[in-house]
Design a protein around this nucleic acid. Structure first.
Lengths: 340, 340
DNA sequence: GAACAAAATGTAAAGCATTACATCAATAGC
DNA sequence: GCTATTGATGTAATGCTTTACATTTTGTTC
């Protein structure tokens, strides 16, 4: 059941069949109809390997993520896959588990597989990976690695802008003492968020004590530990901003276990806006980072680069604040009243 | 930079290069070393399309899921992908969003792409999909569709056993009046769970009132509505079993909003054991359904079928109870005491 | 060292669709 | 009615690797 059979059945040459199947306009409608009928009747499906071998195109995109269990990524994947499907493109996926070794392996595998485009959504792209990627002749888009802008397409998040919004929101509620729970220093996306927070603080002319910055791990645990430390301090911030939602949720849990109330005693803001934010108590005020937007920009970067219309638009995504129940007016403790 | 160049550089024929690359043992070690050196030096990567075209193998598995945003599926995907990677196989993914139209489209796309194996983890496999799948000459594994056992490999979950464990657990705590929140009747996996619950109730010789079965949707909303109905009833069950965790979490949220306490007033059991169970308050007692086990069985089904050693082992996964804080001793209300 | 078996390597066909180029038919212009 | 031009279709080369089969080399045995 190859193209030859179809051609015979339709009484045309294989070239014509191919043209019909690939939508070339250089074929008479009556002939095309005959070919389509033959295709239908024989239930012919072109061999995708032969097709790719000859045409040099696979219609397959690769997508690499740090951690598919982190609800952020399934969202990203879903939008990307859905868009790809609409354009007749399949998606193959690789998960690195934050391991740079696995990243390199994934890149190498996907390039060898011959994907037509590659989207890399990991917190870090190591040099080893870059040197594998650079010579590749396919479009590549990378999330949040501005330093690679000269080599690849970049989609990035304006963290500073996001944190500024968070800080303004807290200020409106009267907060002046704002702390931060960072992510792991080993993860470059976390480092980037931390720096952005500091920059935002600066641009808001806010005082920030060093001991109001807590080290977390972007998981529940980090938030839990931070809460324990915080509530054992004498001079506490009245509001905490977190590097991501998981951290904030861990904080929330620990706080409630320790008998402290959010937002009555301390306001809390997360980052990402996972669906979890609406499930937890109190629901979590957070910075919404649109996965749909990221996926869309990334996808079209690849598509347009494939279409050879390489425009180097820097794609910047702006997070925005979603106020929920975990932020409230600054607590007017007796002590402070007395001092005022 | 094709195989011919490598062959020339190594002073051998392309056949030998191919043999070295594919791990045939019929080649002298010294020759193999020379070939490997040439490959290294030229940084040669075999063209995967030519390879697949000729060998008829793609080393690509397809995986279809109902809803990648449901945390159950990323877990499944992660394990499957990790296993596949270990075996040098790539994975391409399709998400149906519970739509049978999209399922058919996905099956058709993946078959056309030429995957070497296909794992279908959707709540339902429609007839249209089956008729597409049946003539396919690749191994196919399907989750929880026992009726398709004659056509495909099946991995299934012993829901009845799971619910029996849940009921026994509740009985140990003194519960006799146990209700159920079902999933959507349109989703065959939900229907299966509901039937299994009824069977478990029967096998435990438990009385079950019709109005203790609530209709849900496998999302938060369903649980919320169920909670509202439940707490407005005069004769309530003292414990609720849910068709999945999301439902239970919705229930929890609504209950707490209405000022009712879990497990003091009503005990609650979920199903699946998503990581959310540990985040919510109170933490959710649930039936653990091992994604790792499902993924592993499914993967090896495909692998062994590829290796032509088709043994038709029915793979059955047993969920097991994970007791947490949402279940407790039956409330001894005054009314009941008086009546005793 | 001859004869034979086994191992290593080479030759060339096959796998299937795409596409540059060639050819043929039809329409248009004069 | 004849050439020029456009449109439709056919011919055959091409992409790159795998592998059945053929051939050569190596090793063993007597």
């Amino acid at each position: 059941m190859d193209i030859v059979e179809v051609a015979q059945k339709a009484g045309v040459s294989t070239a014509t069949v191919s043209r019909v199947l690939n939508g070339s306009n250089k074929v008479r409608e009556s002939t095309a109809a005959r070919v389509r009928a033959a295709v239908e009747e024989l239930n012919y499906r072109p061999n995708s390997y032969a097709r790719s071998l000859r045409s040099g195109r696979s219609n397959l995109f690769g997508i690499i993520v740090s951690d598919i269990r982190n609800p952020f990524f399934p969202d990203l994947i879903e939008h990307f896959e859905s868009l790809a499907t609409q354009h007749g493109i399949d998606v193959t996926i690789a998960n690195t588990g934050y391991s740079e070794k696995r990243l390199v392996a994934a890149v190498s595998r996907l390039l060898e597989r011959g994907v037509d485009g590659l989207a890399i959504f990991t917190s870090e792209v190591s040099d080893a990976a870059v040197s594998l990627l650079r010579p590749a002749s396919i479009p590549i888009v990378v999330l949040n690695q501005p330093s690679l802008a000269s080599d690849f397409e970049i989609v990035s998040v304006d963290y500073i802008q996001g944190f500024i919004e968070a800080i303004e929101h807290l200020r409106m509620l009267g907060h002046q003492k704002i702390g931060f729970i960072a992510g792991p220093a080993t993860q470059s996306s976390a480092v980037r968020r931390r720096k952005a927070f500091l920059a935002a603080v600066k641009s808001c002319h806010l005082a920030l004590r060093d001991d109001w910055i807590f080290e977390g791990d972007h998981r529940l645990t980090g938030g839990k530990f931070a809460a324990e430390s915080l509530f054992s301090m004498r001079h506490r911030p009245t509001a905490m901003v977190c590097s991501n939602d998981m951290t904030a949720i861990g904080f929330l849990e620990s706080a409630s276990r320790l008998g402290h109330k959010v937002p009555e005693e301390v306001s809390l803001i997360g980052f990402d806006d996972l669906f979890l934010c609406e499930i937890v108590h109190p629901s979590l005020t957070t910075l919404h980072l649109s996965r749909k937007e990221i996926a869309t920009r990334a996808f079209y970067c690849l598509q347009s680069a494939r279409g050879e219309c390489r425009e180097h638009l820097p794609a910047v995504i702006s997070p925005y604040l979603v106020p929920r129940a975990s932020t409230g007016r600054v607590p007017n403790t007796k002590v402070r009243k007395g001092r005022m």
